[in-house]
Design a binder for these strands. Structure first.
Lengths: 220, 220
DNA sequence: AATAATTTTTAGATTTACCTAAAAATAAAA
DNA sequence: TTTTATTTTTAGGTAAATCTAAAAATTATT
């Protein structure tokens, strides 16, 4: 059994491990809004519990057990997000903080029933895949919008930034999940991208394009 | 802002205050499964925060602020219980522990939307009233089944014991909320009560009869 | 009213998750 | 390959919520 804090560390390490192989102390500290010294303390504890492998000064990796625990928390987080959006009419930019709390509720029964109640959703409101109760989920093949060439088309199926500001911005631009897009131009000057939607053409900054994930269906 | 633990103390004090005017240290300790010394510590803290009035050796009472906080937690607890039973098909004897965790989730927005989603229920699965968002709720006029005389009739509208064992027992006897009953006999020997249901007649122990709450509609 | 029993509080420790400041190890730059 | 910069760890401390054991206050009983 892990504490609330331990669970958050595991989740953070899990997410950081998606980007780098060995997860570093400072990276964890930044993500968790705490100090490196505190991270070192917790790291030792998690290593003793067999949840991570840790070699001094070399960063950490999750053990099988640690990874399973982390995935379970991610599963809960994403299911709760679906609940909040589908059932309680929250917007996709309003759910993160609440789900951050709800993900720590410990009943297995609760989550299985919630999953069923929601119709066993495969993705959360931001397009992130929801692991099933055995921790399995499809490794989705996303391409960042920024990587598309002029003429490429696809469907918006995810975002790699969950901040409220970013999501609200997308909403305003009409760039929500499921929307079909095609790249009509890329500006030399600032790298901004012109995209064609079904009903209009808009221009988005490079920064925005970096965080929109596309499942491609055009030439590539 | 209160901590998880502080919230639990306030809730406990609130419930104990329904029975006795001044809530005592030992009573709180027993309820919270902790030691009197720990309670004294917490009591001081809550008093400093203005949530309870406290005179050494004389027990505590909730201040207006403390009471409002407690009622808000009770509201959340009961709304979550309704959610678990109505939406996730939990049984009434399975919801308490999970609701005990869910009641501490802090978003106001969440609870208001949950309330709406559930159709603004007035009572939880055990018949306990759910305070509205301003903390107001009807002081329900219950009579304990044990207090009824032979011939008295009424409707089961609540229970004063939430243990799984007790609730499962009632379920098996067919004594669920909304059922019409009439007292047909009281046994001299052990004080057990014979009651008439729509379809059958059963005998329940004094102990069980003590914890069934009736809204009377017979002669009285 | 004095003694006994109970309840409550104090004193001093422990555990968890933090912190700061300084030391040690590793990585990068001259 | 030194020197410098960065990262990480250690050492020692704090605050929250708990504990045990003993002292103090209150209540009950003779």
């Amino acid at each position: 059994m892990q504490s609330y804090t331990e669970e958050n560390y595991l989740k953070t390490i899990y997410h950081l491990a998606e980007k780098t192989v060995n997860v570093q102390t400072n990276a964890i500290a930044e993500q968790m809004q705490t100090k490196p010294a505190s991270v070192t303390d917790m790291i030792k504890k998690l290593a003793e519990k067999g949840l991570i492998d840790y070699v001094k000064y070399q960063g950490v990796t999750l053990t099988e057990t640690g990874k399973n625990t982390a995935i379970d928390i991610v599963r809960k987080h994403r299911l709760w997000e679906v609940f909040l959006v589908d059932k309680l009419n929250f917007k996709w930019d309003e759910v993160h903080d609440v789900a951050e709390e709800l993900e720590h509720i410990k009943s297995v029964e609760l989550i299985e029933r919630l999953d069923e109640f929601l119709g066993f959703p495969k993705a959360d409101p931001h397009g992130d895949p929801i692991p099933d109760k055995n921790g399995r989920f499809a490794k989705t093949q996303f391409i960042k919008l920024i990587e598309l060439k002029v003429g490429d088309a696809g469907t918006i199926t995810g975002v790699s930034q969950h901040s409220s500001a970013f999501l609200k911005h997308l909403e305003k631009l009409g760039l929500t999940l499921g929307k079909q897009i095609q790249v009509s131009d890329v500006t030399d000057f600032d790298g901004s991208v012109e995209i064609q939607l079904s009903d209009k053409q808009i221009n988005i900054s490079r920064e925005v394009a970096k965080h929109i994930l596309i499942s491609s269906n055009g030439k590539n």
